[in-house]
Design a binder for these strands. Sequence first.
DNA 1: AAAGCGCGCAACCGCGAACGG
DNA 2: TCCGTTCGCGGTTGCGCGCTT
Length: 280
Amino acid sequence: MGRQPADKAKPKHRKGLWSPEEDNKLRNYILKHGYGCWSSVPIKAGLQRNGKSCRLRWINYLRPGLKRGMFSKQEEEKILTLHHMLGNKWSQIAQHLPGRTDNEIKNHWHSYLKKKVAKAEEIQSQNNKQMQYASSSSDTFDSTSSSSQKPAMPISDHCSSLQNYNFIKEANQSSLPKLLFAEWLSLDQANSGIPANSGDDPFVFGIGSFDQYSDFHEAAMHGVSEGGSYGGQFDNGLTTPNAAAASEVFNAQFKMANQMAGNGVIHFPSFSMNNDEMYM
DNA sequence: AAAGCGCGCAACCGCGAACGG
DNA sequence: TCCGTTCGCGGTTGCGCGCTT
């Protein structure tokens, strides 16, 4: 069904880097006609590429509104947190970073952030070892002082966001709600009526959005949610004191989300666009 | 000066999901 | 319901550039 006859020669598609002429052809065509079906774009645009290649070129390079250049510290922090929350869901992560593509984020992760995280984890494990050694070799531990539980070795400033990353990671590993933040994102989307792929960043919450925080905080405190979806996770061997711990984790995550959003409000370009859609 | 090496980025590949006939 | 096509995503590869030796 629909299979091309074997004797019909397949069109020879160009591969490799795009030339400026090809870029122009593709850009002009899409800006003029939009793209209905990617497989027909190269034919109509007069390109010897396959649709897949055209789509990729448009999304990663030609699409208007793309941010080029270095990632800001804020963007990196956002990636770190989202990566921990979502895993290698680069397209989802990219939705929270306007002007950045999933490919760009993925590359940045593999070439830089991954190593940064590994380094920070190494430092942290060294600290943990030192702490273990210190606590086992000394009985003068002051249990009333919370600061005494901090790592003896100072961690350099550039690790601050990674400390948060690791903190959340540990919390998650200890059966605290892994979906906490992601759930909150979807809650936020649901509450605000923003479709998941709208290109609007759920991190955008002004002062008025604190209701969602308090609802969520409530859920974190009591281990329940409207849909009961947190029950299983909070019930996972956790009792009331751990609800407070969960709350602490949530607070940290919320604080971090705030940090990522600056003072709570992010301004985005006025055009509405994401990886998948272009409104013309 | 040139060879070797590592890094960053762009692009390709393969797979699964969604969709339509 | 099946099957082919298209699309989107994540992993991987390969090229080019800059730095080091």
